[in-house]
Design a protein around this nucleic acid. Structure first.
Lengths: 193, 193
DNA sequence: CTATATCTGGAATGATTATTCCAAACAATA
DNA sequence: TATTGTTTGGAATAATCATTCCAGATATAG
């Protein structure tokens, strides 16, 4: 019988993800990854395939983590508008508390690879679609419950919210200041009336 | 007397900028740059210093170009609100017409290098400040002329506009669709009332 | 034409890249 | 305890990276 794997796959993914988040795909070398994860080259290639495969695994892992955190934050908020506001307040909070100002792995990856990497392009597109649908659902609820007007379609508002999110993930890197981010959220969410 | 330079510096910068815009800083090699510009390695190093210096030159060149195009678009629009709307309409137009979906060099660079490259970080911060001030000026005018209410400070609205801009530059890469971008602009600019 | 000062092409360098390979280590079964 | 199939560490490889260097090309000034 085979020798068991000694490392925890999720721990490795977490560390690799942190590295990619900080330095980007092209800025991170396999050498960096071995040092950060503590694994040897062989183990890394054996368990995750090549660099690109490992990166895709990190993207999925990151996506699941973010999605999980978000749904947990809004889990017991009945009002859809309050849900949206809580989500953005939480986002700004995470940005300020992390202190790293690395942005979002998916947003950064969009900027770095979306036009040159087909697999990444597809992932990013699917991700956009998922978030758009989540937001659309929330806005639809809000309109049905009369919390906000029906001036705009749920989709249009959802897309604006998505755009505000990705914008914040860039803005946090170009001007990591609480007032700056608070201003953005305050004005952007003022459309929810 | 020395032999004159045979190539046009601006042409070289334009081609290098296009390459960096498409593949990012780390994704672009000096070999790529020699092929795209037609210059030899020596000429490139002689005229622009190392890769990083050339990149910074490209950033400045790109910034000037974008700023020039924007100010030209709004040059003879008296109403500040119409100026803002025209700017965003122009942006979506450029995005759709270019067809390349490469985003904005400065936004992409923010995502790729802002946390690891001090010089880039400073450039990006200054750029953010410039745009914020430009938008703030426009909003201030709009409020003074009574075009929009004084519910929010000019700075807050300007920051939201900035955020919408950088968001669009990511969104165009994750979902390059006219309706998608139009929806974003429509809702985001609805705060100008 | 000659001299000069700079530009230019391409080879050379040394560091770093991703990836492969293999012998040794190892845990679990028989 | 011997065998088995996998993991593991580190060396080896081949490609690519940014950068340097130098001999020859070239345009101007005298």
């Amino acid at each position: 019988m085979p020798k068991e794997v000694l490392f925890d796959e999720e721990t490795v993914l977490k560390k690799a993800t942190a590295l990619f988040l900080n330095k980007g795909y092209n800025g991170t070398s396999m050498d960096d990854l071995t040092k950060a994860t503590g694994l040897s080259r062989s183990s890394l290639y054996n368990s995750f395939g090549d660099k690109h495969s490992l990166f895709m695994r990190c993207l999925v892992y990151y996506q699941a983590g973010e999605h999980g955190a978000l749904t947990e934050v809004v889990s017991n908020i009945a009002s859809p508008v309050k849900r949206i506001k809580a989500a953005f307040r939480y986002l700004v909070d995470v940005i300020l508390k992390s202190g790293t100002r690395n942005g979002c792995l998916i947003v950064n990856t969009t900027a770095e690879l979306a036009t040159v990497d087909k697999e990444v392009c597809e992932f990013v597109f699917r991700n956009t679609d998922i978030i758009e649908h989540l937001f659309t659902q929330w806005v639809k609820e809000a309109q049905q419950q009369g919390e906000i007007s029906k001036t705009f379609t749920p989709t249009a508002i959802a897309r604006h919210l998505f755009n505000t999110y990705v914008g914040l993930r860039i803005s946090e890197q170009s001007n990591p200041d609480k007032k700056f981010l608070d201003d953005i959220v305050k004005v952007a969410l003022s459309v929810l009336v």
